[in-house]
Design a protein around this nucleic acid. Structure first.
Length: 119
RNA sequence: GAAGUGAGCUAGACAAUCGCUAGAAAAAGUCAUUUUUUUAGAGGAAAGUCCGGGCUCCAGAGGGUACAGCGCCAGGUAACGCCUGGGAGGCGUGAGUUUACGGAAAGUGCCACAGAAAAUAAACCGCCCAAAUUAUCGGGUAAGGGUGAAAAGGUGCGGUAAGAGCGCACCGCGUUGCUGGUAACAGUAACGGCAGGGAAAACCCCGCUGGGAGCAAAGCUAAAUAGGGACUAAAGACUUCGGUCGAGUGUGACCCACACUUGGGCUCGUUUGAGCCUGUUAGUCCGGGUAAGCUGCUUGAGGUGGUUAGCGAUAACCAUCCUAGAGAAAUGAUUGUCCACGACAGAACCCGGCUUAUCGGCUCACUUUACUU
C-alpha cells in the first residue's frame, strides 16, 4: 500500500530502484524513529545523495496533501543536501495526529530533523 | 447611528533565489534522451455525483403495457427536476420570503385515543310536546353541554311547543353569465338554501417525459509472447483410388473452453503414485487478445466589451481574445517588505444546473425605528 516513492538525484542521473533493492535497504539501514516520521539511513557506494519519501494513502487521504508533504520534505532535504552525499535516506511519514497537522508540518519537520543531524 | 432584507464582487499582495508540469525554438546525442532560452500553468465551489445535455458505441426503428420521474399559469433554454415573470395560500410592521400548489364528484380503503356518532350519518346529557303519574314510555329537535386534530356552513334578527337555512341580512360555498387578463386567476351580477369533513406524504386516476451503457466510451498502431485459423510442400496412416485423417470420448448455442481416458518424454519418489511438457515437420498469410503507445483532449451551447429587443431569464448582431491539458497524476520551499494575518479546498472527456463546505473583506439598492438639524 505504498502510494508514492520519489527520488532526488543531484546529478540528474537515472538510478533504477526495484523492490529487491528496497528489501535489502530496509534490512541494513539504520532506523531513527520520531513521532512525525521514521527515517532510514544507509551508506551507499554511488557517491550520490538519494532520497525516498513514503506517504501512506490511508494516512493522508487527499492526493494534494500527499504531494504537498512530499514537496516540503524534498525542499528541506535539498537545503541540507551537502550532508547526505554518499547516503541513501528514506522517510516514511507517520499518521498525522489531527486535521491541523499539515499547517504546522514544516516547523515540526525541522524539529525532528535535528535528530537526524545528530546521526 | 441601530436592527434588518435582497443582489453582486473578492478569495492575501509584491520582489529575489531554488524546484515541478506542458508547449515552442536552438544545440548536443549512444536517436532513448539531455541541456539552454522563452511562454503558459486549478475553483467559487474544481467537491457530492443528485438532475439535464453534447460526444462515443450497442440495440431498435410501429403500437401498447409495466416501471421511473415530473405536476398552478406563461415564458427562457440544446435540455432539465433548472431559471425568469405572474397567480393563489402561508409567514413578516415592512423591504421581502416561502410552498411534494393536478384530481377526494372514477373507484377501493383509512381517520389512533376520546366520543352517542368519524360520514348511504347518528342522538349520551339536554330542551320541548303528549300519555301516564313520579318508575317509565311514545314522539319532536340538533340551539346548548361534553369528546376530539377534525362534528354536516358562520354571525345576528325573525320565527317556533322547543328548535332547525324554516325565512331574511351580511360573510363563506356552489352553479351560470358578464368584465379584465394570452393564461393561472381576479372582480362583479343573478340564481341555489348548502349538496362533496380530512388525507392523494395509502393505493389509485389524469396529463406530460424517458431505449441501454459510459472516455477504463470509442478509434488506430509497433513489438514481444503465445501458437488459433487458412493455404502450400515433405514424410506417414487408411482407402470403395475420388479422396480422407492428424490420439479418442463426452459437455456445450459457439470457442483459442472444460472434464475423462490414452501414446511419448522429463522431474521427484523404495513402491503404489504425483507433477509438468507434448500429440509429424517446414514455410507463407490472416486473425483474436493485452490498463504498452498514440488519438479522443480541449475553439467551446467559450470569454471580454458594446449596441439593439425584452419587466426579466435570455436572444440577435458587431468588435476583440485564445486562457491548464496531466496520466498514480504538475503550483511548493526559503528570504525580505506590507496588511485586514489568509477559510473551504485541487481540473482528470466537455458544458448547463442543483446541493453541500467556507476565514474574512468590500460595493449597491431597499425596509423599519430612534435621535439631531
Amino acid at each position: 500500500m505504498l502510494s508514492q516513492t520519489q527520488q532526488i538525484r543531484p546529478q540528474k542521473k537515472i538510478v533504477s530502484l526495484r523492490s529487491k533493492d528496497f528489501q535489502s535497504f530496509f534490512k541494513n539501514a539504520k532506523k531513527i524513529p520520531t513521532p512525525l516520521a521514521s527515517f532510514y539511513i544507509k551508506v551507499n557506494q554511488l557517491n550520490l545523495a538519494r532520497l525516498g519519501i513514503v506517504v501512506k494513502k490511508s494516512f493522508v487521504k487527499s492526493a494534494v496533501k500527499r504531494n504537498r508533504i512530499k514537496r516540503v520534505v524534498r525542499a528541506y532535504y535539498r537545503s541540507k543536501i551537502a550532508n547526505f552525499v554518499g547516503y541513501d535516506l528514506v522517510v516514511i511519514i507517520n499518521k498525522p495526529k489531527n486535521k491541523e497537522a499539515i499547517h504546522s508540518f514544516r516547523s515540526d519537520l525541522v524539529k525532528q530533523w535535528s535528530k537526524l543531524d545528530a546521526f
